[in-house]
Design a protein around this nucleic acid. Sequence first.
DNA 1: ACATGTAATGCAACAATGTTGCAAATATAA
DNA 2: TTATATTTGCAACATTGTTGCATTACATGT
Lengths: 138, 138
Amino acid sequence: MITAEQILRKQDLRGTACRKFIINGLLNNDKALSENELKGESPELFDRVTFYRTLITLEESGIIHKIVLNDNSVKYALNSHHHNENNLHSHFHCEECDEVLCLEGKTRFEAELPDKFVSHGVFVVIEGFCADCASHIK
Amino acid sequence: MITAEQILRKQDLRGTACRKFIINGLLNNDKALSENELKGESPELFDRVTFYRTLITLEESGIIHKIVLNDNSVKYALNSHHHNENNLHSHFHCEECDEVLCLEGKTRFEAELPDKFVSHGVFVVIEGFCADCASHIK
DNA sequence: ACATGTAATGCAACAATGTTGCAAATATAA
DNA sequence: TTATATTTGCAACATTGTTGCATTACATGT
C-alpha cells in the first residue's frame, strides 16, 4: 500500500500535515470527496485557506483532480495512473445520496469538433441513481 | 423566427421583462452566456436575485439549460428541440476566450455503469481552444 | 541533533456567487 | 378595469473562492 508521504515525495512536494491529511482521506475512500467530506470530524483542523491552497497544489502536481458537478459543488479524487488518449475524465454522480464515483476506463467518447478546434480534455458527469438509491426509490 | 413571448407562452409562463430579456439575449447569440454576459451593457437592469430566480424558472420549464464549467463558472443556453437517447448534453469550452458552444448531436458517448446504476443524463464539457484561439496561440 | 533558507500555514479582510422572507409592483384573465 | 396570483426588488445572510503578509514548519546541510 502506497503512503501519502511516498505520493508527495514522488512529486517533489513537502510532506506537510494538510497534504497528508487530504491524501489519506482520499486513500481511505474509493469515492470522490468534497472539502467538507474530507474535513469530516475535524473541520477546524486546518484553516480554510490552507485547505484550498493545498487542494490547488495537489491538483496542479497531478496527485488529485477536481470534479465540478452540475449543482456547482466540487469533489476531489486521487488520480489513477491510468491514461487514455483523449484525456477523458468520467464520473458518476448519484442525485440521491450525492456520491461520486470515478469511471476510469469504463467510458468511451467521440466528438466531431468544428474545424481547427483543439481538445485538451473531456470532462463527463453522468447524473443518476447509484444501485442502492435506485432500489430504495423503486 | 420564434419570439421570446411565444417561447414563454408555450410553457405557460408569464411574459415578464426579465424573462424576455434573458431569452432574447440567448436568441441573438449562438453561444452559451454567463449571467454577466447576459446582463451586458445594463447590469443594473434587474435585481441580481430576480435574475437568478428567473434563470431557475427558465431552466425548470425546460427553456434553457445550465452549463457548469470546470472552473466553477456557469453559462446558460437555449434548449434545442433535439432529443437524444441517453440525454447527452455536450459543450465545448475554449480555455482562452472562454466561449462555450453547444455540440448538439455531434457527440457520442458510452459508459459501462456498475450493476443497477441508473443514468438520467450525461453532461460533457470539452476543454480546449476554439479555431480562432488555436491559430493565435499557434 | 541543530541551524538555516525556503516553503507552507494561519489570519484578516475581501470578492463573488447563491439563497431566503417579505412587501410592493406587475401580468393576465374575467 | 379590476381582482388575484405571480413576479420583482430589497435587505440580509450563507457559502465559496481569493489575496497579502507575518508566523511557523519542513527538509537539507552540517
